[in-house]
Amino acid sequence: MNTQTNTQLPIPDRFDRAKVGEVWRVPYQDRAAEAKIWAKQHNIQPAAKDKTRICLMAIDVQNTFCIPNFELFVGGRSGMGAVEDNVRLCEFIYRNLGTITEIAPTMDTHTSMQIFHPIFWINDAGEHPIPAATVISLDDVKQGKWKVNPAVAYSLAKGNYLALQKHALHYVQKLSDEGKYPLMIWPYHSMLGGIGHALVSAVEEAMFFHNMARNSQTNFEIKGGNPLTENYSVLRPEVLEGSDGRPIAQKNTRFLQKLLEFDAVIIAGQAKSHCVAWTIDDLLTEILTQDPKLAKKVYLLEDCTSPVVVPGIVDFTPQADAAFQRFADAGMHLVKSTDALDAWADLSL
């Protein structure tokens, strides 16, 4: 008999939608005690007893992307996209506490000297590129419009500036050859040790509550620490080898296989056009090499993700929607957080 409950649970009275866009301290000990009472009150069983094993992968639901006025707030077309998405994500977690087996939040994790941050590059005038407004193309590097900042060579290449400059040219060449987004210079964001790196408080609280109520360790997946490549996807960096052909990074094969061992994988997070789309694309690539039918176990929470939109500058909504349609055409499911899980196609509870 399946001890897993597919009945939607109530949302705890203490959950405050108005606080989802704010940063605050989660009272862990209080929530741990409440979770045990909540589990007993609603007959929520330990995750180890689940017959149908479901993973919720929450991509980069961090302050840097999800809190207004932080470094890379994903506003979407509504202007408050990530906040609205996280209200729905928190409520989805609470309602389906007895059904979600494991939650796997990915954590974009950076330091200052990385290939997509301003300090890495410099022009002949001694200026760094303007973040979120500068795209560095292959021609820009070939023509010397932008060069690697010699000052970063000490920390990143043991003083070997020529090797770093060679890598930079190789890097933008690979992005161009493989049809990936060109190199965008981003504001310093998701900085390791900083408040922007942390999960959104309300989401962290919901995940911790799930952890305690279901005795299921939250599975944090760190990405983005390699200074020589972007890492939109948690499953694979943008470039895997250096100019000499030697590997500088590798696919996250361990996590890929773990995801595919679940009966269902539910995906939400930020941003729909970048880290979410890239992660799903890498997951789909792996699925197609193993068994295309596995795509049916993937569910995309369309109302818990938003694309990058910078009013008057760039709007990645069409690209994000096109990517999600491609995923659906491959067999993945586009679903809403408000839908009952037992009504989802191909999900047997």
Rank of each mutant, 00 (worst) to 15 (best):
D140F: 06
K174H: 06
A153I: 13
F116V: 04
M113G: 00
Y154C: 11
Q114V: 06
V148S: 08
I119T: 06
D108P: 11
T99K: 01
K147N: 15
V87E: 11
A157L: 06
Y171H: 11
P150E: 10
W121L: 07
D85S: 08
A133K: 10
S137A: 04
K158S: 13
V135Q: 06
R95S: 02
Q114W: 03
V152N: 06
S155H: 09
T106P: 00
L175W: 00
A157G: 08
G126V: 11
I136H: 09
V148M: 08
H117K: 01
C90P: 02
K142F: 08
E84H: 14
Q114M: 11
E102H: 09
A163N: 12
V148R: 09
Q165V: 09
L169R: 10
D85R: 01
N96F: 00
D108N: 13
N86Q: 07
N86Y: 05
V135R: 02
A133S: 09
S112I: 13
A153L: 09
T99E: 01
G126F: 12
V83R: 15
F92Y: 11
F116P: 01
D108W: 11
M107D: 01
S137T: 15
K142N: 14
D85H: 03
P131R: 09
G98I: 02
S176A: 13
V152R: 09
H110K: 05
N160M: 12
T109H: 11
R88P: 06
S137H: 06
F116E: 05
K142G: 08
P118A: 09
T106Y: 05
H110W: 05
D108C: 08
N160H: 15
D85M: 02
V141C: 11
P150F: 14
V172S: 04
M107N: 05
I130G: 03
Y171G: 03
I119H: 04
W146M: 10
S176D: 11
L169G: 08
M107I: 15
A151F: 05
D85C: 07
Y94C: 02
V87Y: 08
W121S: 07
K166W: 05
S137G: 02
L164H: 07
D139C: 07
A125S: 15
N123S: 06
T134D: 03
L156Y: 07
W121C: 08
A153G: 08
P129E: 06
A104C: 11
N96I: 01
E84N: 15
G98Q: 04
I130M: 11
L89R: 04
I93G: 03
V83K: 14
Q114H: 05
K174A: 13
M107R: 05
N160V: 12
G159T: 12
E91D: 06
I122M: 13
T109N: 13
G126L: 07
L164D: 03
L169V: 08
T134Y: 00
I100P: 00
F92T: 04
H110S: 07
K174D: 02
S155W: 10
Y161A: 10
I136W: 07
A151N: 10
V83H: 15
A168F: 02
F120R: 07
W146F: 12
V83Q: 14
D85V: 00
G144Y: 14
K174F: 04
L89K: 04
T109I: 00
A132P: 01
D139W: 10
I122D: 06
W121V: 10
N86W: 04
M113C: 07
H117G: 01
Y94K: 00
K147E: 12
G159K: 12
D85I: 01
A168K: 02
V83M: 13
V141I: 14
F120S: 03
